[in-house]
Design a protein around this nucleic acid. Structure first.
Length: 305
DNA sequence: GCAGTCAAGCGGGCAC
DNA sequence: GTGCCCGCTTGACTGC
């Protein structure tokens, strides 16, 4: 039985000796559920001490879809890396063992990319740390700058992969199709995360702006309230009459000299205007009314429409 | 030592 | 049923 370990540089397949023939073909036909069941049964098998009896290991090179078909023994690894200077050490070996995910995803098998690693050479409880003694590095894959650049360029053109493009990139970069696929998935996730952060910043700024505006409006409200109080109290009587006038458009009292109405008739009496102001305390529709007193605290409602 | 980055695994959902 | 994508997570690696 063959298991593929995701590894661009060194392909490991685990032969678990489950008595199944041509698993890669067979697995193609299995559903997720079936595959999961298979995984679990395979895990059980691995954990079974009886399977420790004949550990064996065989390493294969990265046989990307087009040209990596031969298998090498683990002693070939150095030669392999010499031959493939960009090849990375078995990146997924650690995850593979540490997470107990002894079963390579069938997806890779579907792509016909499985590598063979006959697990019989390993004890069933093998851990990453133990791999060194078998001559395996537990280093993680890092794509080279060249590989990343090509993938980035491709991503800029299309953020999603077509089958053809995936295979082309895999061949070009000496990676497996699955690795190209994963890179695009992670790249999309990073893009989305960045966008989320940008949106978050925008919302923060918006929130701050609204808070500030709210403060200003609260302040203006307080000022209006205090002004209203002043007009009701004795202080009002001390205001110079000349500073009060009627707004021409709304016929309400305002500060400033002169007193006219919007229709040119005689000025409204202060008492009636005050009554109007108190009964209908809504702010004047045209804020030029208070502009001189409060500056830009008031927005001209005519302009803001 | 620790936080950040990134390749990769896993499970679930969806479209065909 | 299959393949693809996404969200979440893990673990190796890196820079401080």
């Amino acid at each position: 039985m063959l298991f593929d370990i995701s590894n661009p540089g060194l392909r490991l397949g685990l032969g678990l000796g489950l008595g199944l023939q041509d698993q890669s073909q067979e697995t193609c036909m299995k559903s997720h559920e079936q595959r999961q069941k298979q995984r679990q049964s395979q895990k059980k098998k691995i954990a079974d001490p009886r399977n420790k009896a004949h550990p064996s290991l065989r390493l294969g090179p990265p046989h990307d879809d087009a040209n990596n078909n031969h298998q090498v023994t683990k002693t070939d690894s150095d030669e392999y890396f010499n031959f493939h200077p960009h090849a990375s050490p078995p990146s997924s070996v650690s995850s593979f063992f540490n997470s107990s995910s002894f079963i390579k995803r069938e997806r890779d098998q579907l792509a016909g990319e499985e590598l063979e690693l006959e697990v019989e050479k390993f004890p069933s409880n093998l851990r990453v740390a133990d791999l060194d003694q078998y001559g395996y590095s537990k280093k993680k894959l890092r794509l080279t700058k060249e590989q990343s650049a090509v993938l980035e360029d491709s991503f800029k053109e299309h953020s999603t992969l077509t089958l053809t493009l995936k295979q082309e990139l895999a061949k070009k970069l000496n990676l497996r199709a699955r690795q190209v696929e994963v890179w695009f998935q992670n790249r999309r996730a990073r893009t989305k995360l960045k966008q989320t952060e940008v949106n978050c910043e925008l919302l923060k700024k918006c929130c701050e702006s609204l808070t500030e505006e709210n403060k200003m409006l609260q302040k203006e409200l307080e000022e209006l309230k205090s002004m209203k109080t002043a007009l009701q109290g004795p202080l009002f009587m001390q205001l110079p009459v000349a500073t009060l006038r009627i707004c021409p458009s709304c016929e309400r009292i305002c500060g400033g000299s002169g007193a006219t109405t919007n229709n040119g008739s005689s000025p409204t009496t202060i008492t009636t205007t005050i009554t109007t102001l108190l009964v209908d305390p809504k702010p004047p529709h045209d804020h030029h009314f208070y502009k001189n007193n409060y500056g830009k605290s008031f927005v001209n409602t005519e302009e803001s429409k």
